[in-house]
């Protein structure tokens, strides 16, 4: 199907053949917000809500039982209990986040431990491999390149807007990689596994784009 350019510069996917599809008189997207276009990736709309989407039931995780493991090639490079993790250097960032289901939320504030600080805490000058798989409670996985995590681009977040992240939003800790579509920010992260070769995670192995750059509208495999 051809992608038509809409008046606002975004593209509508799945444009129908106009002579067959009935137009619903007066219907228009209510989601065109007054946001500078430069701020929003193509096809996105701004929401004031924080929609929740999960691939499974919300795990009820007690922080006293929580650990974060860093693994590479079958070896455990490091592990933190909650108390130890909270004692690591904390960073606060403000970013826009973009979900592949088309909502974007602007200026969200998160606090946690950056990937750079995790490497430092492990005594590593650099990551042992180019790829990481995030493993989460409930079985969810997502793959991210190290290049998309270093330089402050990725963190393990524990607070949203100054408060502990709610379970429905991935608490007590979630991966946060805001420059990619938000499915890459795996909720309930428990283990980061370094991989020599890239492997596809939960959505990436089921038709979603392996990389997921919202600015290139890389929603699906083949985009």
């Amino acid at each position: 199907m051809t992608k038509r350019r809409l008046r606002d510069g975004s593209r509508s996917k799945g444009t129908p053949s106009m002579d067959k599809t009935p137009i619903s008189r007066g219907f228009r997207s209510r989601r065109q917000q007054q946001t500078p276009k430069i701020r929003l990736p193509p096809g996105q709309y701004v929401t004031m809500d924080f929609p929740v989407l999960s691939a499974g039931p919300t795990p009820q995780i007690k922080v006293e039982n929580w650990t974060l493991d860093i693994q590479s090639g079958g070896s455990l490079l490091g592990t933190w209990s909650w108390a130890a993790f909270e004692a690591l250097p904390q960073t606060t960032i403000k970013r826009d986040i973009h979900c592949v289901t088309k909502w974007s939320k602007l200026d969200t504030t998160w606090q946690g431990v950056t990937f750079d600080d995790l490497l430092k805490a492990l005594g590593l000058a650099e990551a042992p491999t180019p790829y990481v798989m995030a493993h989460c409670d409930g079985g969810y996985t997502t793959n991210v390149q190290v290049a998309d995590l270093v330089g402050g681009k990725g963190m393990i977040a524990t607070r949203y807007e100054g408060l502990p992240i709610l379970p429905a939003h991935g608490g007590p800790a979630r991966l946060l990689v805001p420059h990619l579509y938000f499915w890459k920010s795996g909720k309930w992260v428990r283990r980061l596994r370094f991989m020599k070769a890239d492997e596809r995670g939960f959505w990436e192995s089921l038709g979603y784009h392996n990389y997921g750059d919202p600015w290139k509208e890389q929603r699906y495999d083949g985009d």
Binding site: M1, G56, Y220
Partner: peptide
């Protein structure tokens, strides 16, 4: 995003389906 169908007893994933362009 897609359909993730889980067992009503053990929550195991039985089926996943996605419709993409």
């Amino acid at each position: 995003m897609g359909a993730v169908l889980r067992c009503a007893h053990c929550d195991g994933v039985l089926l996943r389906a996605v419709h993409t362009p």
